[in-house]
Design a protein around this nucleic acid. Structure first.
Lengths: 267, 267
DNA sequence: CCGACCTGTGAAAATGGTGTGAACGCAGGC
DNA sequence: GCCTGCGTTCACACCATTTTCACAGGTCGG
């Protein structure tokens, strides 16, 4: 469904002109970028949770081959694209055999670089369809994409597909307030018709099933006039946390909502 | 080791000079080649069991884009590399976005073409070779890939080829819920058409044959709106659980439901 | 406190997914 | 050519899920 997830790309290059333009376009496309101007150790690359890196080996120097070899070997899930000026057939062949996924020659159009990164990422995601996404945990909950189910205390919530997709989206955006339109768009896959109450109904079903298996937690919170927020809270603590969170809180840019929360809680 | 598996490559091109040289080198490397001089329908490509195709869209003509789109859409597991003289950035970007894995410009060195095909096919074939060999057991079942058969209590289930492939896939993913599209993709080798019921029909055939030879086990479970899950369960458990739950029935203290249940049961 | 609007809730109605039997078409063997 | 086994497609019945609707309850701005 949401295979169009944003791409997290690392760029290792010192050609500021190229990088700047690329960054601009990538951000416009919703990608997340990390930049560096020298070799980044493998563990740090892992920490960045990148889908791919775009590297100009020239900025690394003599150890470039060694570095590329190590990256490709240690991070089999990372797409590696080399982008460099002047290269021989022999170098490209060597690089590709080493494990590099694509080799582009500068000067190159940023769109093409992006398209190639995209192609590399796509191919990799497809390759491990089985791996799927890892399970999420929140409060007593465990959301398992490989089972299309959520569990509390080892027991299944018996969610239907839509219920699961909705809960998965919410749990994945823990702490964030999601508007109904956004939720509908992401779960149903198309725009919400004006006046559609489906989201509300499914939220209710989720709350019922959550309550049934995990009564002492509050997971889904309503934000009046906005949408819903997923945030596991042990029952009873609710008031304190909201009061404590208040100073930080005023995130919503809508009307004068913040006031409401205070009043509501205070009463 | 794993990088030295033979690659099955399809070449669609009329540039006999290039193709001849490529074929020579590829064969020297132990690859298996299939050649064509025009568009090859998707089903035929499936039958060839290729890892990748190398296509010059010029030999296909006006329908090249349409053809490439169809190939990429219907055969997600097939690597697609385009190799053509003269192309614009816009064309390359369009192609890569379409699902093409790599785009090379002629004239190109055969070694580089091979290296790029190799890069495209590299990732998804990891660890596939070892999975083939071993027999699987689950419940009373024994799945034997070497015979393309499954047995229960020493008796063959008399599975056809497709039935076996399906059961093998399911048993190999024991406990995991597999979507129909995934199943079709992996067993049939290409994308499932919308509304295709083949998977359902074969599941029924499997269930019949399993029931016949191993009546006291439930192997294949339906997940509504999603797909199927293979998980051997002794049939007895199900009945017991239902019977045990029935007398106690009032499971949850929601509204006034229990009353209804009791009345209903009492009658 | 009122009216307007938003959200929660239960149940009916519509939709759509699954099980199943059977007909069809195709290829390989006799 | 005819038969047989296999895979595909179709139609229908049944039922789980989803959507819709009406109303109750809550929240907000005056």
């Amino acid at each position: 469904m949401n295979s169009q997830q944003t791409i997290r790309l690392g760029v290792i290059d010192t050609d500021s002109g190229f990088v700047t333009v690329l960054a601009k376009r990538a951000e416009a496309a919703g990608w997340q970028l990390r930049q560096a101007t020298g070799a980044v150790p493998a563990p740090e690359l892992v920490a960045m949770k990148l889908n791919a890196v775009l590297i100009d080996p020239a900025v690394i120097g003599d150890e470039a081959w060694e570095y590329l070899d190590r990256i490709c070997g240690e991070l089999p899930d990372l797409g590696v694209v080399v982008c460099t000026s002047r290269s021989t057939v022999a170098q490209r062949v060597r690089g590709l055999r080493l494990g590099i996924d694509d080799w582009i020659t500068k000067p190159c159009h940023p769109e093409e670089a992006m398209a190639r990164v995209e192609a590399v990422t796509r191919r990799r995601r497809r390759g491990r369809s089985e791996a799927e996404a890892g399970p999420l945990t929140a409060g007593e909950l465990e959301v398992r994409p490989d089972q299309f189910q959520a569990f509390a205390a080892g027991e299944s919530l018996d969610l239907t597909r839509r219920e699961f997709e909705l809960l998965h989206l919410l749990a994945d955006s823990e702490g964030q307030v999601l508007e109904r339109e956004t939720i509908y768009q992401r779960v149903w896959g198309y725009a919400m018709a004006h006046g559609d109450r489906s989201v509300d109904v499914f939220i209710r079903k989720l709350r019922q099933k959550l309550e049934k298996r995990s009564p002492s937690w509050a997971y889904i919170h309503t934000h009046f006039g906005v949408g819903y927020r997923f945030d596991p809270e042990p029952a009873g603590i609710v008031k304190e946390e909201i009061r404590a969170a208040d100073p930080n809180a005023p995130e919503f840019t809508d009307r004068s909502q913040q006031l409401h929360d205070e009043v509501t809680v205070g009463s």
